[in-house]
Computed example of a mutant assay.
Amino acid sequence: MSTTGATSNLKQADVCQDCLPEPEASRKPEPDQNATPELRSQGQVSAKQEEDVEDPSTFKPLDLGIGPAITIEYCDRCRWAPRASWTATELFLTFPSPAITSITLTPAVEHSGRFRVWLKLPSESEARLMWDRKIEGGFPELKVLKQRIRNVVQPNQSLGHSDKPGTAVVPSS
Rank of each mutant, 00 (worst) to 15 (best):
E22V: 06
A47E: 14
V45E: 12
W131P: 00
P61Q: 10
P96H: 14
L105G: 09
K146L: 04
C75Q: 06
A88Y: 11
D76Q: 14
E24D: 09
E126D: 07
D52V: 15
S46H: 10
P21C: 02
L145C: 05
L119D: 00
S112I: 02
L129T: 00
P23M: 12
D32S: 11
S85V: 05
Q33G: 10
V109K: 13
C16W: 01
C78F: 06
C19R: 09
V109I: 12
L91F: 06
G43C: 11
S125P: 00
E90A: 09
T106G: 05
C19L: 13
W86H: 06
I70L: 05
P56S: 04
R77H: 07
L93T: 12
Q42Y: 10
T87S: 06
W118E: 03
C19Y: 09
A88S: 14
F115Y: 08
Q147G: 03
F115H: 04
P107L: 14
C75S: 10
E126P: 00
I72S: 09
H111C: 07
D132I: 00
L62T: 14
E136I: 00
A25L: 11
E50L: 15
L105Y: 13
E73I: 08
S46N: 13
I70F: 01
C78S: 10
P122F: 09
E90N: 10
F59L: 08
A127N: 00
L142G: 03
T94V: 12
